[in-house]
Design a protein around this nucleic acid. Structure first.
Lengths: 235, 235
DNA sequence: CGCGGACGTGAATCAGCATTCAGTCGATCC
DNA sequence: GGATCGACTGAATGCTGATTCACGTCCGCG
């Protein structure tokens, strides 16, 4: 007869799992996805390498989980910011600024989660995440178009370009490292809005009113992101 | 007494080296940088694995060479297109459109060379390449700004964002695969020009006059790209 | 010719890492 | 208080893929 899982044990196991996830994320955030290896993660979590496999069936699964958690967090923040805005263009601006601000807040992690290749299986999940972000933007863009706030254009095509511009312009290897973060966020947001066809002066106005998340501290909701498409096994 | 290298031998060796480079590039172009492994490259070049090492001291050096060659090709094409244009904004538009068109022409290779991570040492070279492209754009942007054709802005910050938008918007995993290539090029160019602050109508005019390289065939000059910074050993 | 050096070969070596598993230990149950 | 269960350990295993090297082969040389 199998043993029951004591309340205590359940807590301990859950805590351990979280510890592993935290270890993996912090390593990713410090040294990139490539550095997320079983041995270092286990070491940082103060457990043996083998133990990791009691919690995650494979390294890929662990990484996938890290990505899914980060993705859920970012998407939720973007939605929240956009939903709080007064109009379609404001929503768009907030959405972009929020993504930008949070990315800037933890450059390396964002890069690791969104851009740094690891493995073909993982890449599939990452692409889902990017798609979700681009989709979120595309959705808002379409609303603005149908309200005549933006010139007619193919939102599905433009949204990825904005994501690329944000990533490359803010946290890519070429982006200036230091500088005024708030200003950088406002600049890329302005850039994006203009690219969408908002005239310069209007865009500046929108940005001025835009809530930009406090840099240095942001919500850490743990709504795991689940891609809609079925096929992301991440073996 | 060491033997001299016969004319014939020199030719043969050079041809072999080229064959290896071609093999590596074609594999990268078909399956990405990850698939550029010594064994497959050697196989495609019809030589033994060990022979590759008579021509390149390490795999990284081989890959670095592939990247440098591609980079030189692309930069030259961008410069040529821009220099042939009548004015600063035209030059900018041509530069962007050329990059876009050529990238679209060989998506996978462009992606492999510009975006697909391989190894930290290689990444350094890749970053140099990106920097060179962004620098080329920044240069043209600054000319346009000083001629009052563009609103004042930080070209060094904006140029990488444009590169990101082009890559992600055209050849990234989210970009629509099929479709009208010429139209796609014109769309991202329009997007970029607007982002820089060119008003919509004017941008469209510029693009209409813009020479877009024939899709499907383009110059294959072999001006190897050499990053200016000294430290790109690529061990 | 026939010697010797350079090229070419590909099997063996080496290294990095994920994954496994026989063995240890503390908690749970009767 | 034993009998087990099941988590934990970490050394051993296995795989993938770059790199090496002892040995053929070719060709310029006298």
């Amino acid at each position: 007869m199998p043993y029951r899982r004591t309340e205590n044990v359940v807590r301990r196991l859950a805590a351990r799992e979280q510890t592993i996830l935290d270890a993996a994320q912090s390593i990713a955030s410090e040294s990139g996805m490539g550095a997320v290896q079983i041995a270092p993660v286990a070491h940082r979590a103060d457990i043996a390498a083998g133990t990791v496999y009691r919690y995650f069936p494979s390294k890929n699964n662990l990484i996938a989980e890290v990505i899914a958690l980060a993705a859920g967090r970012e998407l939720a923040a973007m939605r929240e910011a956009a939903d709080a805005a007064p109009g379609p263009l404001s929503a768009l601006a907030s959405c972009i600024a929020t993504f930008a601000a949070r990315a800037l807040n933890d450059r390396r992690l964002t890069w690791a989660v969104l851009a740094e290749p690891v493995d073909a299986n993982i890449d599939a999940l990452r692409v889902e995440f990017r798609r979700a972000i681009a989709g979120e933007l595309a959705w808002r863009i379409n609303i603005a178009i149908s309200g005549q706030h933006l010139p007619d254009q193919d939102a599905r095509a433009v949204a990825p370009a904005i994501v690329g511009a944000l990533l490359e312009g803010l946290i890519g290897p070429l982006a200036a490292p230091g500088g005024n973060a708030r200003e950088a966020v406002q600049n890329v947001t302005l850039f994006s809005l203009r690219a969408l066809g908002v005239v310069d002066a209007h865009a500046r106005g929108l940005i001025a009113q835009c809530m930009i998340p406090e840099l240095g501290s942001y919500s850490n909701k743990v709504t795991r992101f689940t891609p809609c498409s079925s096929g992301s096994s991440a073996t």
